[in-house]
Amino acid sequence: MPAECLVVRLQHSLGQVWLDVQFSLRAPWTVLFAPSGAGKTTVLRMIAGLERPAKGRIVRPDGLPESSPTVLTDTDRRIFVPAHRRGIRLVAQRPALFPHLSVVGNVQYRVEPKRQERDRFLEEIFALCRIAHLRDKMPAQLSGGEAQRVALARSLASGGDLLLLDEPFTGLEAELREKILGELRSYLISRAIPVLQVTHDVSEIFSAEAEVLRMEAGRIVAQGSAKVVLAQERQALLARLQR
């Protein structure tokens, strides 16, 4: 992976909060940590190309597949690459599974057709997300956690070279979440796919061994290892576990 795989500078009004963030992704797994309503989801949506910032620039430095555009958003130069051409996958908070397709239909919706050994590839993803037993079910028959895992599988199957996760593990049992997170991390690192995850759950961050971007009042106030950036939260978490 290159030293920087994504450089982001965004300014945007979110009602009472003025979003003014600037950061770059350098680690295989980065977590954007902020309280609810701080604009985390908006940042992810702008990176994915689902929203336009009032002002800003999103760039993917060289080193990525040539098919992907380098400048994704640049308000000064009026550049805005549409979401479907960014090569960025987003697993949103609401899974939005296509209700007319079964689980397997959802997962293989945009599976890369040229990919060799497609079936084995899909089986690997089904196993990773723990959804093999759900393959013939319809989305309406799934629980919230199951639907989230299917949404994650659907994004993994569709390729992409950057994965954005918007609190996709909310509602999952802690043990299952740990297992999936661990395997997901190995899977993505082996394929050189960096992750930007949004969460307000401290335990998830330590499970993923992630670099942390701490966001407060619409700004990035710290970037670094979780142990340093979230030292206070870590102490509180340890104290809670020891009780």
């Binding site: 994915a48 190309g49 689902l50 549409p82 979401a83 479907h84 090569g87 960025i88 996958r89 987003l90 949103a92 609401r94 939005a96 599974l97 296509f98 209700p99 007319h100 919706y109 945009r110 949404a151 659907r154 994004s155 569709s158 390729g159 992409g160």
Partner: peptide, 24 residues
């Protein structure tokens, strides 16, 4: 959210219409 999900999976607006919007 459904068409957005299709778009971030790499589906063009037209594919999104025929694959997601119309069947739904």
């Amino acid at each position: 959210e459904y068409s957005e999900a299709a778009r971030v999976l790499g589906a063009s607006p037209l594919r999104c219409f025929f694959d997601v919007t119309l069947p739904m």
